[in-house]
């Protein structure tokens, strides 16, 4: 149910990595690779975060919006659902769901401010139409649990409150990946603490062992995060640009 991850629709709908790493048939025909899709989603997650800074909504709204966007692309193609419209619309919908409603015209204003590129320009009407299509694509499941809540509690418990900023930043970065669609939020939080311990050279094996969680899963998530950072170094503007280019013009 709504305030408990374990009975939530989110928990019931966690996906396997293979279900998330899909390239829809239409996208394949347009020449999209899995790597392209991942790059575009990452690029859009960044776009959502930048828009959010401008319209002044909190991180939780960003996290929910990115989750919506990622869920949409497990079911819909980028060819049919233009990410440049889906991303701001997800932020718009998430702002309502998280009770920090942002007006559509304000969003349109900041989109223009951030992007002179014609391909990013959308009318209010287009956002409102996309809002309904996204609601449908999400199958009306709107409650999302995030690692942040668990994070603060766990850090305190581990005696690592000094690493809060680092761990918080790591959690923010997990939204550049699809982890939130695959793993329960508290395991993502633990993986971030694990990475933070490694980076800070803090020995807390005992603390982890005393937790009743599958440490293999936590370590695997941590490995994914570290792999992401490694590969992230190699991502150039140009590669993102090439992937985005496949989206072509506004239909």
């Amino acid at each position: 149910m709504a305030a408990n991850f374990w009975t939530s629709t989110q928990q019931k709908q966690l996906l396997d990595a293979e279900e998330v790493d899909v390239v829809h048939q239409v996208d394949k025909e347009m020449g999209f690779t899995l790597e392209d899709c991942k790059l575009i989603k990452m690029h859009m997650a960044n776009y959502i975060a930048r828009l959010a800074q401008n319209v002044k909504v909190r991180q939780r709204v960003v996290a929910t919006a990115v989750t919506y966007m990622r869920r949409v692309y497990t079911r819909k193609s980028m060819t049919e659902y233009d990410p440049r419209l889906v991303a701001p619309t997800c932020l718009y919908l998430a702002s309502k769901a998280e009770e920090s409603t942002v007006q559509a015209r304000l969003l349109v204003f900041y989109i223009k401010k951030l992007h002179s590129d014609e391909k990013y320009r959308f009318e209010i009407k287009e956002i409102l139409e996309m809002e309904m299509k996204i609601l449908e694509a999400l199958n009306y499941y709107l409650v999302v649990y995030h690692p942040y809540r668990a994070l603060s509690q766990l850090l305190q418990d581990a005696g690592m409150s000094d690493a809060t900023q680092l761990a918080w930043g790591l959690v923010n970065d997990t939204y550049k990946m699809d982890l939130i669609l695959i793993h329960p939020p508290h395991l993502i939080a633990l993986a971030c603490i694990y990475v933070a311990s490694v980076l800070k050279d803090k020995e807390n094996t005992t603390w982890f062992e005393e937790l009743r969680v599958d440490m293999n899963v936590v370590k695997n998530i941590a490995m994914e995060i570290l792999d992401f950072y490694d590969s992230h170094k190699m991502i150039t503007e140009e590669r993102v640009h090439l992937a985005m280019h496949k989206l072509g013009f506004k239909q």
Partner: peptide, 19 residues
Amino acid sequence: GDGVSPTAIREIMLLREIS
């Protein structure tokens, strides 16, 4: 001009989770 009303969103999101 502000799309689906937040009231409707709130009602859907809660009722979709509870039973």
